[in-house]
Design a binder for these strands. Structure first.
Length: 576
RNA sequence: GAGCCUGUAGCACAGUGGAUAGGGCAACGGCCUUCUAAGCCGUAGGUCGGGGGUUCGAAUCCCUCCAGGCUCGCCA
């Protein structure tokens, strides 16, 4: 149980009100608007009816009713305006949490709560032969952050990049490559080369409609196992994966499975047969559909009137396969909200097919990225490539680094950590459902609530620790004494300590809500609190007996910032 | 037309039943002979889209209207 929950239970055990359980009390506890008021508050308004007393009197009476032994567990218990405010001894809290963090280090916040449970997460899910653009960022980064937090809490996370690696576009690419392609150029230029011949195909097809027939024929050949077609297709796929791997690496994004549409191509028939046998399907306008009008949804189309399968068919097959292979506890789809209906439909079909695990399927939607002049469109050529954004961010970091810290070595490596961090942090800052209007000004902002701010805070902390000239592993082996802890007898330290205590709760909150931005914002709060502490309290030249406690607080800040950023896929430079 | 989502300061956002609605950017004014100023402090900026309701208490829940976005059987 987290420290916060333990503290709530301690409070609940001190309060007794007729017909109200300890758990109820614990659930009613809130955080006061200011830490000065206390750590937890019990609003007494709703007891007024049962107890037939005013909330003010109830709070006063409850405060009186607490036994001396129980009162000693707190620094103060004060009734104010109908609230009963509890404050724990801040130095005692500091002692415990610092001991835990310094012992566990990056393992602080880890748990085994997810042991034995597998979570499939479908994210990024790119199309072969197309470059990563800014619109791919959300799915990739949100999915990756959830993946890492699940692992931190002991789950067996399975990262799945459901590749868009099948379809008539490969017929077009094969025809285009046979007509105008050059293998050496393809291997050199990679995805941009594929984009180029793909665009050329569309241009030429305007005047030569027969190209489209050729493309269809080429795709048919691919499906039928034609060696030449398969060879080209394999090269296209390999080159795309090699190209995007560079970006995934720099973003610290990992996948355990790359099974995409091609993989599920031969796994749809049994699913369709099963749905047919269950009498869930019917023929409508020559298409095979599952009618969902009882659930106020349009039908889920499984087979088109021309005999081809669809996205939904493949997703159903993929769901069956994932349950069979991984026996998941949950299966997440980090996919834009445009597909809300699609997922509602396939989850409903699974439910109708009697799959109890249909309830474990979760669509994690996020907002769309558009440009200031409207939606992105590959055809119009107004796409922002992810690589370009990252490169620009790194370059900007390098310029700032050169001007602010000209003496540093390895500037390129440091700038990469800062620049990439800025982009990722930006993408994880807001609630995922919010739409984003892309702007270089905003994504390349390095002041205020940004990755560079947090990274800089960590660098400050690290610098202090370095200047201590001690072996940190040995320096903190003995527990802090009460006299040493007095170095933390100030508002700034108390705020940091209370934030540290929340870290485990923040991680479970991220998973409960599938919302990495909760962690992003938390890290900002920690950085802000440390900067205030750092400004108001000397560490290196503090009175001797205060040094070790303040250094411990600094070290703990460093540990939590590093671990928090790592879970978001962001590096922490040692200097900047 | 229907369904879902969003609407909080000039801008982009946090807060989703509790105390005086919070941070950031932009603006203005301060703080570097002391641990990294990518920092810190202060000032200014609000009909929480409008209206009605529920509640001791509503930005938060319900109803309704307005604005914007997404989706609505053979794309993914």
């Amino acid at each position: 149980m987290s420290i916060n929950n333990k503290k709530k239970q301690i409070i609940a055990s001190c309060i007794s009100i007729d017909s109200i359980t300890n758990d109820d009390i614990s659930d009613l506890l809130i955080s006061p608007p200011s830490q000065d008021l206390g750590d937890f508050a019990l609003p007494c308004f709703r007891f007024a009816k049962i107890l037939k007393k005013s909330p003010l009197a109830i709070a006063e009476d409850l405060a009186q009713s607490i036994s001396e032994a129980n009162k000693n567990k707190f620094a103060s218990i004060i009734a104010v305006n109908g609230y009963l405010n509890f404050k724990f001894n801040p130095l005692e809290s500091a002692k415990q949490i610092l001991a835990e963090i310094l012992e566990k280090k990056s393992g602080f916040g880890s748990s085994t709560i997810g042991a034995g449970k597998t979570i499939c997460i479908d994210y990024s899910s790119i199309n072969i032969a197309k470059p990563l653009h800014i619109g791919h960022l959300s799915s990739t980064i949100i999915g990756s952050a959830l993946y890492k937090v699940y692992k931190k809490l002991g789950y067996n996370a399975v990262g799945i990049n459901h590749l868009g690696d099948w379809g008539t576009q490969f017929g077009k690419l094969i025809v285009a490559f046979d007509l105008w392609g050059n293998m050496a150029a393809l291997k050199k230029e990679q995805i941009p080369y594929l984009s180029k011949i793909y665009v050329k195909f569309h241009e030429e097809a305007q005047n030569q409609p027969e190209l489209n027939d050729q493309a269809r024929a080429a795709f048919k050949k691919l499906e039928d196992g034609d060696l030449h077609a398969i060879e080209l297709y394999s090269v296209f796929k390999k080159i795309t994966l090699q190209d995007v791997a560079k970006i995934y690496k720099i973003l610290h994004v990992h996948f355990d499975s790359l099974n995409g549409e091609a993989f599920f191509n031969d796994k749809m028939t049994p699913v369709i047969d099963e749905l047919n046998n269950l009498k869930l399907t019917e023929i409508s306008d020559d298409a095979l559909v599952v009618r969902l009008s009882d659930y106020d949804m349009p039908p889920c189309i499984l087979i088109r009137s021309d005999g081809a399968t669809l996205y939904a068919t493949r997703d159903l097959a993929a769901a069956y396969y994932r349950k069979e292979k991984y026996d998941f506890h949950k299966c997440l789809y980090v996919v834009a909200y445009q597909q809300n209906l699609h997922f509602k439909q396939i989850f409903k079909v699974l439910e109708l097919a009697g799959k109890k695990w249909a309830k474990d399927m979760v669509h994690v939607p996020f907002g769309m990225v558009s440009l200031e002049d409207g939606a992105m469109s590959t055809r119009k050529g107004n796409v922002i490539l992810l690589k370009d954004v990252i490169d620009k961010s790194i370059e900007k970091s390098l310029v700032i680094l050169k001007s602010k810290s000209p003496k540093l070595k390895n500037k390129r490596s440091l700038a990469t950590k800062i620049g990439v961090g800025a982009v990722v942090f930006f993408a994880l800052s807001n609630n995922r459902i919010k739409d984003i209007i892309f702007s270089y000004d905003k994504i390349l902002s390095f002041d205020g609530e940004t990755a560079p701010y947090v990274q800089y805070t960590n660098v400050r902390a690290l610098s202090v620790l370095k200047n201590m000239n001690v072996d940190l592993n040995k320096y903190f082996t003995n527990h802090l004494t009460d006299d040493e802890l007095k170095g933390l007898d100030n508002k700034e330290s108390a705020l940091l300590v209370s934030l540290f205590e929340k870290f485990p709760d923040i991680l479970s909150d991220v998973l409960d809500k599938y919302e990495p931005s909760i962690l992003t914002r938390y890290i900002i709060d920690v950085a802000k609190a440390f900067n205030k502490f750092y400004l108001e309290n000397r560490i290196l030249n503090a009175p001797d007996e205060f040094k070790r406690s303040r250094a411990a607080l600094t070290y703990a800040t460093h540990i939590i910032i590093c671990e928090g950023l790592k879970l978001l896929g962001i590096d922490t430079p040692e200097e900047m």
